[in-house]
């Protein structure tokens, strides 16, 4: 593990950069996925169609293609941003489609009577989604949402290959190709970096699930 210990500061900065990227994508994909899930079950046909189209496009397109499009397609359309931004946007849109479907399974798990009671009180569609349906849907969708987000954490390495810049993936690449270290110890270090993030997330998820469980 010599190369890792020699370059601990580099690993640490890579770890922080990856973590920052992941947190942006976590917040972004949850927001996009929640809005799309609400559209997906809304009584307005055009919103439903938009959400269906979104999920179909982004869930069924390989992540690398989405990222290529963001990194090279958007600049051609005159949209110029950092690669960090493009990579985050691509991963957010890609992951948001899975968040939407996980949440929709949660919405379906909420008994129909809950929505009826909300409507009977005079809550509008938006109010009953926000106050009654989504809070319960989130709780029952925590396990699939967790899996989707952990997959996103790992996909951030793919985004790293497109040039987030300075993240864990780039650290591995710099150490092996530019400085000539052996692959096995360097990549083991990178893997440990990701494991710290994913295992911590899994533990937090378990705690969260216990804390917000609804008794019926």
């Amino acid at each position: 593990m010599g190369p890792v210990i020699d370059n601990l500061d580099l690993y640490w900065s890579g770890f922080l950069q990856s973590l920052e990227f992941i947190l942006w994508c976590l917040v972004g994909s949850l927001l996009v996925g929640t809005v799309m899930a609400a559209f997906r079950v809304s009584p307005v046909p055009s919103l439903r169609a938009l959400a269906v189209a979104y999920v179909n496009v982004f869930r069924n397109t390989p992540l690398t293609i989405v990222l290529f499009f963001m990194a090279f397609g958007l600049p051609e359309l005159g949209i110029n941003q950092s690669y960090f931004f493009f990579a985050a946007l691509g991963l957010i849109l890609y992951t948001g489609a899975f968040v939407c479907e996980a949440l929709r399974s949660g919405v379906n798990a909420v008994p129909a009577g809950q929505a009826e009671a909300a409507r009977a009180l005079g809550l509008t569609f938006t109010q009953s989604m926000r106050q009654v349906i989504l809070p319960q849907a989130f709780r029952s969708a925590i396990p699939p949402l967790g899996s989707v987000q952990i997959a996103m954490f790992k996909n951030s390495a793919v985004a790293g290959a497109f040039g987030i810049g300075g993240d864990l993936y780039s650290v591995g690449k710099t150490l092996t190709s530019a400085r000539g270290y052996d692959y096995v110890p360097v990549l083991t270090g990178v893997a440990i970096g990701y494991l710290i993030i994913t295992l911590t997330a899994a533990a937090l998820l378990t705690l969260l699930e216990r804390k917000v469980a609804i008794v019926r």
Binding site: G113, Q114, A117, A120, G122, V132, Q136, V215
Partner: peptide, 18 residues
Amino acid sequence: ARLRAEVGMVFQSFNLFA
């Protein structure tokens, strides 16, 4: 929604917000 606010409803299965 406004009209429903004027009409109280009690269900067989209670439907309290869990």
